[in-house]
Design a protein around this nucleic acid. Structure first.
Lengths: 343, 343
DNA sequence: CTGTTAGCGCGTTCAT
DNA sequence: ATGAACGCGCTAACAG
């Protein structure tokens, strides 16, 4: 009951178990893995001894020897953003159920930090990496080192790697068409980037909806803002002051916060005076009154798919050519969008 | 540009660098660590070669040899709950800046999963573990195996380990006193557990505030619900139907969602008809109209402190006796709490 | 089915 | 200042 040895209580090894069970170390190794030859009797004895001694296999030694590992690196931009948290949660769920571990790194959307983190993961000998990329060269670097990579949510450059993406264009188009269907003709788009497949896709869906409806899109209604709620709030101010919009479409959940803040500040009634819609459904959007009309990306599912895809790749169950999984988003109409006000 | 070898492109090792640089492996090892003797000339040459070959040290081999590791296990209950996400984000921030890695596991608040995860972390030879405990024996098991443990947010049983806690009693008391100060005398408390230090502390603060004000607390106003929004919603129904409360205090952010949902469903005006307050400030609480009066736990700071405490312990910079850091919460008054309605 | 041998990649002795 | 030898804990080969 003491067990209070100051030293890093060196834990029992296969040697200890072997000695205690009266067999050789390799027999212990075989007996503990379900695979491998070992007689029932020996297996049971070894397992009993291991249990009694509190033996826990040393992953580092095992991995070093067998040149494999079950750890998976996950590189995301911002854990405090529910989008990334959900993504990570989906990934972790599958990894855990399959006996893998998740090494999670927040790269703050910074390419340098991402590259640095990728090198660390390399050093740790992870079996694969799931990344929401921000640095163009990152996945290539990993792949060049024999590490499987799955891009989550977006793809950067022309790198050939497996990916799980939301169908951004379809989702944004549907959302925009919903607004147009309500009679809106001047819809402001808040968007932070269009270099990535996410922003590019959403913008293109926004355009496509206008084209489809025969509306000549005023380019001034597309406001490029930076990636934070405060910037979005200022951009919303601009849209509201100068461009006579009757609806605002936010390209992600963070920008939507800024838009909502400004609208609330002005005490504009939603949706009577202004409609608000956002890409990426997150919990607060159904808690506010009225609820925000959104596109649900099924973010947790995206995470799950990433993990499944990566594990399949690691187990070499997939054809060589890179696979892209597209998760169809779903429009959720809530109270924040309504008929365009009469002029 | 090809680099398309099918085999897990075995990466360069110290051997390769040594051969290429015309020195011995041990010299390479010394040259790459800042410490250790090596002539300037050799050191530079070795570093140049390592760079050119894309050499990345193998953590598993290093750790195996040196019997240390920089990986830290983090065990939390639910990554999708912003409380845990913020906690993890704070932990990760400090770990990363100090050259450590975070292995994150979601135990879903299940003691068995937690124990299982702890064993995995043990196998991975983590240098320490940060845990929001749910299984009583978990931290003891880890400590018995020589692994440093920091309990985050709550403590279970009488286990002696470092911990970073919110001052739940003070926070809940302040929040309750705020309500009492507004004239509320029948305040319903939604709480999911009181076995942990969190629930126990918050309940005790709730009681203390009543005592302090000389109000005889009706025990029926304390509703023990289970840990999900839907259960909280039903409990809210009960409070509203049978107990004539003028205010509801939710013991955490999840339960608050249920309470708000029911209040909105009944179209009760906040705060005129009913006041709502919640422990644990999360983003949606300042987005809804009116904003929810809360206690901010400084969750990210708690995470940071956990990591700092753990690293200090690992570096043996702390006296033997266990340290408990208490992070003072802060009352944030928003619009959801107002004077109690006249009878 | 089992034991013996060897070595994963590295850092740390000990010699020189 | 540098190289040779050894071993961390484990498992893949090989015998038997």
């Amino acid at each position: 009951m003491t067990g209070d040895s100051r030293k890093p209580a060196s834990r029992p090894t296969v040697q200890d178990v072997a000695r205690e069970a009266g067999v050789s170390p390799s027999t212990v190794s075989r007996a503990l893995h379900t695979r491998g030859y070992a007689s029932r009797e020996v297996r049971e004895r070894v397992q009993e001894v291991a249990q009694r001694l509190g033996y826990v296999p040393n992953h580092m030694a095992r991995n070093l020897r067998s040149r494999t590992s079950t750890a998976i690196g996950v590189l995301i931009s911002d854990l405090r953003n529910p989008f990334y948290a959900d993504l990570a949660a989906g990934v972790e769920e599958v990894l855990r159920s399959e006996g893998h571990q998740m090494i999670l790194v927040n790269d703050n959307g910074d390419p340098d930090e991402e590259m640095h983190a990728a090198e660390t993961l390399l050093a740790m000998q992870v079996a694969g990496v799931i990344v929401t990329p921000v640095a163009a060269g990152c996945s290539k670097m990993l792949q060049d080192n024999g590490i499987h990579v799955v891009c989550a949510d977006r793809r950067l450059g022309r790198n050939g790697c497996d990916a799980v993406l939301s169908d951004n264009k379809a989702g944004a188009q549907e959302l925009t068409e919903h607004l147009i269907g309500l009679g809106h003709e001047r819809i402001g788009l808040l968007i932070d980037e269009t270099k990535w497949s996410t922003g590019a896709g959403r913008l293109s869906g926004f355009r496509a909806a206008h084209e489809h409806a025969g509306i000549d899109l005023d380019e001034d209604l597309i406001v490029y803002t930076s990636f934070d709620a405060e910037a979005a709030r200022e951009s919303t101010r601009e849209l509201l002051n100068d461009h006579h919009v009757t609806a605002i479409l936010s390209a992600n959940n963070v920008l939507a916060q800024g838009a909502l803040a400004e609208i609330k500040h002005r005490k504009l009634r939603i949706p009577h005076k202004i409609s608000l819609a956002a890409y990426d459904d997150v919990p607060w959007m159904s808690l506010v009154q009225p609820g925000i009309t959104t596109v649900d990306q099924h973010t947790v599912d995206i995470g799950r798919s990433c993990a499944q895809l990566l594990l399949a790749r690691i187990r070499d169950e997939l054809p060589a050519r890179h696979r892209t999984i597209r998760v169809a988003p779903r429009l959720i109409v809530r109270g924040s969008t309504g008929p365009a006000p009469r002029k």
